[in-house]
Design a protein around this nucleic acid. Sequence first.
DNA 1: TGGATATTCTGGACTGAGTCAATAATCATG
DNA 2: CATGATTATTGACTCAGTCCAGAATATCCA
Lengths: 140, 140
Amino acid sequence: MSKHIDSDFRATLKQAGLQVTAQRLAVYRAVKACPHIMADEIISTVESEIGTISRQAVYDALNAMSDHGLIRRIQPAGSAALYEHRVDNHHHLICRNCNAVVDIDCAVGEAPCLIADDNHGYAIDEAEVVYWGICPDCRT
Amino acid sequence: MSKHIDSDFRATLKQAGLQVTAQRLAVYRAVKACPHIMADEIISTVESEIGTISRQAVYDALNAMSDHGLIRRIQPAGSAALYEHRVDNHHHLICRNCNAVVDIDCAVGEAPCLIADDNHGYAIDEAEVVYWGICPDCRT
DNA sequence: TGGATATTCTGGACTGAGTCAATAATCATG
DNA sequence: CATGATTATTGACTCAGTCCAGAATATCCA
């Protein structure tokens, strides 16, 4: 079944003008398997799958893929960058205690959060929303 | 006139149960003078004012003050932590090009952004919004 | 005023996340 | 298959921030 993902993703990589390599496929599979994963978790996941990969290759793959919109990087305050394969408009809800992250569909519609009272002359293209709270498990 | 700020802030520190020190006053003055300032800029600012201060003292002061709600820390993706003296409900608009940050008053009211479609069982206490765009100066 | 106690400051070592740069391997394409 | 362009590997390095232990200060209370 990972065959499917792979062949789909091979095409996606090519369309983006990126070469298809074992490392990139493995990195993508890791992100797909575990959304909101950190770079070093990706390294271990990929290592246990592919055998070995350099840290740099992982970062290169992650940067290339997120630059081309194939994956998305989120950087919550106080933690390392997380990667996810969902690239549509959605937001995140993070537990202050255990840092668990869940996806939140956009409350209002397509790109709703772009409305600010006063844009100060900026050309706003994205509104990033992070909800902070305590997850069910941590509400002892 | 900085006398005013100082004596007000002395009281605020005491109310928060924190001791009043020259370093803390200086750090607070730096944050007040330049909102959205980074830690190492604070160090230089304070050094040119007080003469010398240790990095640790600055971080301690910043952590203590933000823990007690005297200042606010924001950590936009891809940059170091920024500190500001506004502690009320407001959001930020950041230029993708030059990283300029401006405050945005909360579009809807007091704590409006707390409405998420599905809270997944979380007890949500804050919604943090970051608007990304291009500032007037960078729109060549 | 003068300690006793709690808190803060200092300087240096250290960590973790991520980047840089040079070399080696691999791919794409004629 | 030759050649140039991408991608991987390796190792050094940066940057932001924390940890630690001893020295210095501030606050409280008699």
